[in-house]
Write a protein that binds this DNA or RNA. Structure first.
Lengths: 225, 225, 225, 225
DNA sequence: TATGAATGAGCGTTCATTCAT
DNA sequence: CATGAATGAACGCTCATTCAT
């Protein structure tokens, strides 16, 4: 119980001040315990940061669907577009909610690079699995190198994520993702998938024309607080 | 002379450790002077950081061409693509050479945001000037809002730059830029420009197919040292 | 416990070196704790000085009698002289014991002037109260302006105190006070008081003649240590 | 020439900040020379302080008259009172003009006590000389111990000086001195001198009654600036 | 003489970590 | 498990003094 409070407090303080400027004192105070208790649960400040990061990545990993753990695996061209966009938007919304912490983790390139890299591998693996799944289902062209494509997609998404967390106001994440999905899957998809994605785009464009001042329609996880 | 050495040393140390973790002691030592001498040239550590940043931005600004200070302003569809890509690749190569420092400046969003923003304005202004120039020359469609387009282009390039400096190994900057240029200018260019850009792309693709293991071919400014 | 030791040590060190030349290190060392502990109890060196000063003034204020808190208020001419001289000698003896610190506080006229002034007000107020008391008792002439007289008396005593703390060897405080009391109260007293004071003076003179090598006969509070 | 400027500047800066807080830099700047030049003329900051103090005491000593170097030595009861008061008032006015520096010198009791003491000796010696002179002239009673009286007078004047320099606004120095002179010389003077002093007092009192708002009538040396 | 850049010892303050209770 | 007082290493900045020119 205390450890949970400490982790919560640590995430807040690390998000607000970064690893170096975060005070153990403040973490303990926010958790409602003494500074000494902090050291009963963590070996030190850096260790707490690692745990917070690990927890964050675990929550993040839970948001990454994979064909194995999905009961209703979409395999028809019509629903794949919506499925991908929804999953990705969920992930990006979560990153936006926690953008301060994401920024902090990304700001220490030397230290803790491994955490980013391990998550990157997770993402690549999941992407590869989906691409294979859809390749088997005839939505992705048989000649596509799924491993390479997965790498490229994840790399592009990282750039997108970095750009997002550097913003001050919430950017139109859904539109960004739709564009990205359109770009990637049109490049590797078979004719049915490309047609389905294009019809989605047309549909969305007409909606946007009808209601230009789009309500952000928050979805997904709220920021841990 | 001493100040130059201090600025060089400061840039190195700030790049390596960031503002807070940089030691005045180390900066002075690397510059070959005493700690006291540091304070003959700077009001304090933060002041030195500002000077380093200002110098960096000045060097950066020199790499941004504008129609006014360019003797040979390209205005024909055939050469515009190469011109843009070359200028952009130069800029990105410089950022890559100084990626550590770029990361540091970008890592303190609150403090020093103004330096990033001021440079952003410089870029937007230059982009707008080029777009107007080419609009007058018939390469950019007359109905394009150059101000808005300039904003979008600069924003996209920022995302690209952020993604680049976060990499450990030099990414294929030239390819990234070529893709970006292809995307943006096809969207706002008139038919001749679009055709010229597409022929560039075809040409490059065939080159890449012939020589898959691309030699990086460093160009542009070397890192100040 | 630690704070008491720190306050004691701080008073010593401030007395010996003044605020600026006092070393936090030395204060902590004398108190038998680490430098870090000093900052658990004080916001900084100046804050410690203020606390020491406040404590000193509090002890000082306790030595100033007032008619309200005195059970046996003397109101007859014969005992008033002895009462005044005794109270004043007590106060001056305390100042002498703490002459180093008194000198330090008085040496920074700009900073900390308020502490001296606040104590001055306390003294004036007490003096006024006594003069009114004795005026009602017929020992002070009815036409005397007690407020003005109180100011003058306190001012003269301040001069006396300043002169005393600047001495290297203990001056004849009792004699100084006796002279001062003789001067002031002869000027404002009614005939009975003046007669009583004069008889005291005669008596003391004959004693002094009999025992020229006057024993200092310390009295009152010892220096806090 | 440079040394004179440095001494002047040093006196100003020492007066304003005290020995420890005075900056060699500021002294040199005010003198219009470089910091290095300062060390051509003084062995260090403390040495400069000693020279400034010595110069100040020399000027002070010049203001102390002695029977030997006085062409018109007053020896009649009528003019002695005016003579003493005038000389003392001159001295005190000078001290008032330089009260900041006087305070500084007095504030370092341990260090530099010798300068005060040497000047004290000068004063005592001069007072003794005058008392002897007047004793020979029949204005001071023959049974008076001139050495002891000189000590007492100088001690009392020191107290007066200390009280004065601690004031924020110029106190009525002339009145203080007149009172002091009246007190001391009535105690040791012969009948003619006492009568003369009393008539002065009466005269002054009537003047004061006629013009209560006494104009200060500055006299003597102006503050070195 | 004069300069002023360079030096480096020194101090106030912070804060992660420890440990006796 | 919990506390919080205590520790001490670390660092930014100041400024008296030196010395090459």
């Amino acid at each position: 119980m205390v450890k949970v409070a400490l982790l919560r407090a640590a995430e807040e303080v690390f998000s607000a001040h970064g690893l170096d400027d975060a005070l153990v004192e403040e973490i303990a105070r926010r958790a409602g315990v003494s500074k000494g208790s902090f050291y009963l649960h963590f070996a030190g400040k850096e260790d707490a940061f690692k745990e917070v990061t690990a927890g964050f990545l675990a929550r993040l990993a839970q948001m990454v669907p994979s064909p194995e753990n999905y009961s209703q695996v979409p395999a028809d061209a019509a629903s794949v577009g919506a499925f991908i966009e929804d999953a990705d938007a969920n992930l990006f919304d979560f990153l936006w909610q926690n953008r301060d912490f994401v920024r902090i983790v990304g700001a220490s390139p030397g230290r803790f690079a491994y955490v980013v890299e391990s998550f990157e591998q997770t993402l690549i693996e999941a992407s590869r699995a989906w691409l294979e799944h859809w390749q088997r289902g005839g939505l992705v062209r048989p000649d596509v190198d799924v491993q390479t494509s997965a790498r490229l997609i994840v790399g592009a998404y990282q750039g997108l994520a970095r750009a997002m967390v550097a913003e001050k106001k919430r950017p139109p994440i859904e539109a960004w993702i739709a564009d990205a999905v359109g770009m990637f899957y049109c490049g590797i998809g078979t004719a049915p998938l490309v047609r389905a994605l294009q019809s989605r785009r047309v549909q969305r464009a007409s909606q946007a024309a009808a209601a230009p001042a789009r309500a952000p329609s928050r979805r997904g996880t709220r920021r841990a607080k």
